[in-house]
């Protein structure tokens, strides 16, 4: 980033629970108008970092300013300019769709005709105008997420914080959320999202940080991270009895890196190599030849072991 237009500046943030560092020396500069992703396995410290941004978790050390307000000292003023889509739905089950937005607006001290206009706009934005008076428990999972997104926009925030915005949604619902988030970015809002869907991060984020064990392992644009950390070409070979050892018999280019996860062998290569495909066809193996993705970077950096 050439121009420093940071809306969030975090320096050396730390937080421990029971002696264990869950946020370990995190530095972040998030620029106005960008979509920034926090990626990491479960328990990596993503949600804790977001809670710090809101003043809901107090950092042990480090400094944090949001829109020029020091956090947690002036968190209230910062929160007035932030919208939040939490990981777990906390829509008010006692209210209808519109009442949820109206009640949430009141927490910002907003009421009256301006709020009603805003609610109408937001329900159109969230494609929920036909559900205005519906009780919350009649909404599908996708509708609830969209309503939560609309609710986060009630105060016309400059920054939108989204904690796993599409977890548990079907592909259609996910596409719709993505489209809305792109629209919001075009309106100039700063988006900060956590996800463990690499496809989501690659599509939406201008920049992202990969976090593991509370530390930022690397950060940059998705393309830059792929270039920096992984060979551009990947062949995945799968099927019963596929063994990394048996493939590495000389038909692979010398520079190829081979990894095996369960029944799948990943061959990472710096160049496309027709010999590899020919070999797979000859051996009658199922394979997929593709470009490297963020997922490859993520797995390389955070390891392939199952978490939790």
């Amino acid at each position: 980033m050439q121009v420093d237009n940071a809306v969030i500046r975090a320096q050396a943030l730390c937080k421990s629970y029971q002696g264990q560092r869950v946020v370990d020396n995190i530095d972040l500069m998030i620029q106005a108008g960008e979509c920034f992703g926090l990626l990491g396995p479960n328990g990596a410290g993503k949600t804790t970092t977001l809670r710090m941004f809101l003043g809901l978790t107090l950092p042990e050390s480090g400094s944090l300013t949001i829109l020029g307000h020091p956090i947690p000292a002036v968190a209230r003023e910062a929160r007035a300019r932030i919208g939040v889509v939490p990981q777990l739905d906390n829509l008010d089950p006692d209210f209808t769709v519109a009442e949820n937005l109206r009640t949430y607006a009141s927490y910002f001290g907003l009421r009256g005709a301006a709020v009603e206009t805003r609610i109408t706009q937001l329900l159109v934005f969230a494609n929920l105008q036909h559900k205005t008076d519906a009780p919350i428990d009649t909404l599908s999972g996708g509708m609830k997420r969209r309503l939560t997104l609309a609710r986060a926009l009630i105060n016309d925030p400059q920054i939108l914080i989204l904690d796993e915005p599409t977890t548990g949604l079907d592909p259609q619902a996910r596409q719709m959320i993505w489209q809305r988030l792109r629209e919001l970015k075009q309106q100039g809002k700063t988006l900060i999202l956590t996800t463990h869907y690499m496809e989501e991060a690659q599509r939406l984020c201008d920049r992202l940080a990969i976090i593991d064990h509370g530390r930022i392992i690397t950060q940059g644009s998705p393309d830059a991270l792929i270039q920096q950390h992984i060979e551009p070409y990947v062949v995945e070979v799968y099927g019963n009895g596929v063994q990394a050892a048996s493939l590495a018999d000389g038909s692979l280019p010398r520079s190829a890196r081979i990894e095996q996860v369960g029944e799948t062998v990943f061959i990472y290569m710096s160049q496309e190599d027709p010999n590899v495909m020919a070999m797979c066809q000859r051996e009658n193996l199922r394979f997929l030849h593709r470009r490297a993705t963020l997922e490859d970077v993520f797995l390389k950096l955070t390891g392939r072991d199952l978490r939790e």
Binding site: P86, Y107, F108
Partner: peptide
Amino acid sequence: MQGTWVGMMTTPLS
């Protein structure tokens, strides 16, 4: 159960 309080605390309410 409903997370109502934390929802409020992500607004200017403390």
